[in-house]
Design a protein around this nucleic acid. Structure first.
Lengths: 346, 346
DNA sequence: TTGCGTGATCAAATCGATTCGATATGGGGA
DNA sequence: TCCCCATATCGAATCGATTTGATCACGCAA
């Protein structure tokens, strides 16, 4: 392994002091333009790469941010959604010259220790927390302690933590309204996500709201609390089956549960959408290939990741009191609701 | 933000010097047991968390590793596969008290700069590179420069870089042999991945090998080089269509292309597996829900990630000349090959 | 010619932990 | 009683960059 090139080497080659070299590379106004040029040339000639730890130590700031995925979130974000988030975060981080640390915690203790190690050890200047449960106090604790935190997902209005979320209420409303207005459906059931998660709460609220606006009310027999996993969709399918009447529709709070349920129903001889209409949420890549292709609700998760990182960057930069950001959703109409126009190809 | 607790504070509370405190927390044999205990108590009482940058600077080693996903790999690993890898890496890293940095590069220049920033800046003690192209020199360059590198994916035998891969040759052979031996198929085509990637090369070689062993040879009209994306599966479907004869089979080198192709064929009135048998590779979650469910080849990608991290850890620890590791694959028989036994549920 | 102001450069302190040669302490043997 | 050795602890140097008060050089005005 070749010897490290240090700032002292660069300074020596450029014929200036370490101080000037450092300031030159930081493009400070205190050094003359000609000197800057000379230092920069020396640096690139030697292939100088600053030692991140040394810089971080002296300047007391890290050029990395952490993405924390609490274990409770592992199934809240579907894989593709999480990849999109990471992609958005990572691209924005590249642009802002920040490194991204990934921290997945498997248990609750791991979680606190991961938080501590990363934040208090100053490995990262701030944290993006993905999909915390509404009971999770860590984000607000950390924020109160003065650490920059951005939560991905909508937060209860009372929270003071910066967040970048999705308008799940609006998304759910839109897809339920589609059932009511386009298909004239009047009995609409719901398979929710785990109701200690804001996303699940919001989708349920949107669903209830859309019903109410149409003068309908929800039928408790057509409600099932799932956990976003496919298996719970299958369970929901069986639980709802005895109460389904011709022309009913079910709104699943994610695609995976809808897909599991549809397979279960097909096995039971039920046809979608002829016997029961189905709509869902997430626009998971799989939803396009389901049979029938799912009518669902999507959002720009890459954009969410991007904005989350930028918000965090502003917090790190000293800004405070950032208003929550909420991304809009888009209705993706396919066949499972009873619309025939679009093919799986679309 | 509360003031940082530093090692000096801990030492003061414990009534020892910084030196002893440091050695106590590192569980060194040079400090007495009773002292260790006192220091540990003081540390936990104050909530001491060591400053990672300071430790890294002095000891000249980082407690983080980097996962680099070159831009060329973005579509080589499907999302679920990549998530599994990350999960394995991340879990093992937690266990070994290492942090994980994620670096995705969008362009080739970004790539070198990302490598440099992370490695030469000593942010990470080593790197796991996912799915480099066979033309990518960076891994071996870095390895030659003395940096610990583990590549995920099989490498050409000549390479001296540590790797953790999948036995794609064996996997491809197994699934093609299934077509030959169980279904008696004699005309078997192949839609490969991009042939500058080892995984694509290996699957093609496995396919050719299985044919040869059965005394069959490949028909060039039934070959198509795709790029692992669904759209290229669709293109392959159209390109192969005119040359398909009843009873033919096509081996797709990943599930996404197979799914795209099957949809295209269905639209053209072709039935799978009645008119054309289909097998593929990856055991993507979607493959189970395809219609018909895909017969495919899977591997333990979480395990691969885990082993990759552990190999890297050994390299960092000074071991050298680690033999390449190759994970076995498993054949997952569903309906697309013509087998009827298993249902999508399985 | 001298003095002063300004912009460029420099030397030295600093960040927080680790490391190692030096020192203190205490017990056992002569 | 005295000395020596082993063991436990300590002081100070160190990692590499950043930062800031101090110094230097130079040009211009008096």
């Amino acid at each position: 392994m070749q010897a490290r090139v240090t700032l002292a080497d660069v300074a020596r080659l450029a014929g200036v002091s370490k101080a000037s070299a450092s300031m030159a590379l930081a493009d400070s106004a205190r050094v003359a333009g000609e000197t800057k040029e000379r230092v920069r040339r020396a640096a690139s000639e030697l292939g100088y790469v600053p030692h991140a730890a040394a810089a971080a130590l002296r300047s007391q700031r890290a050029d990395a941010i952490a993405v924390v995925l609490p274990h409770v979130a592992q199934h809240v974000f579907s894989h593709p959604v999480f990849i999109d988030l990471l992609e958005g975060i990572s691209a924005a981080a590249n642009e802002l010259d920040l490194s991204v640390m990934l921290s997945t915690a498997r248990s609750a203790e791991d979680e606190t220790s991961a938080y501590s190690r990363i934040i208090r050890g100053r490995q990262a200047a701030g944290v993006i927390v993905a999909a915390a449960s509404v009971h999770d106090r860590s984000p607000s604790d950390m924020q109160r302690a003065g650490y920059p935190v951005v939560v991905i997902g909508r937060l209860p209005r009372s929270s003071a933590v910066a967040s970048v979320g999705i308008d799940d209420i609006g998304g759910a409303k839109a897809v339920v309204r589609h059932l009511i207005e386009v298909h004239g459906t009047r009995r609409i059931g719901h398979v929710s996500g785990p109701l200690d998660h804001q996303s699940a709460i919001d989708k349920r609220d949107g669903y209830v709201g859309a019903l109410a606006q149409a003068g309908l009310s929800m039928n408790p027999r057509l409600f099932f609390e799932g956990d976003y996993e496919e298996a719970s969709g299958r369970r929901a399918a069986m639980a709802l089956l005895p109460h389904l009447e011709p022309g009913d529709a079910i709104f699943f709070s994610n695609d995976q549960m809808a897909i599991g349920a549809m397979e279960e129903w097909r096995r039971a001889g039920l046809r979608v959408p002829e016997d029961v209409r189905v709509v869902s949420y997430d626009n998971h890549p799989m939803s396009r290939h389901a049979s029938p292709p799912l009518t669902t609700v999507g959002a720009d998760m890459v954009g969410v990741g991007d904005r989350a990182l930028r918000q965090l960057h502003r917090l790190i930069g000293g800004e405070t009191e950032l208003a929550p950001i909420e991304f809009p959703t888009g209705l993706i109409v396919r066949k499972s609701c009873g619309c025939l126009g679009e093919d799986a190809h679309g």
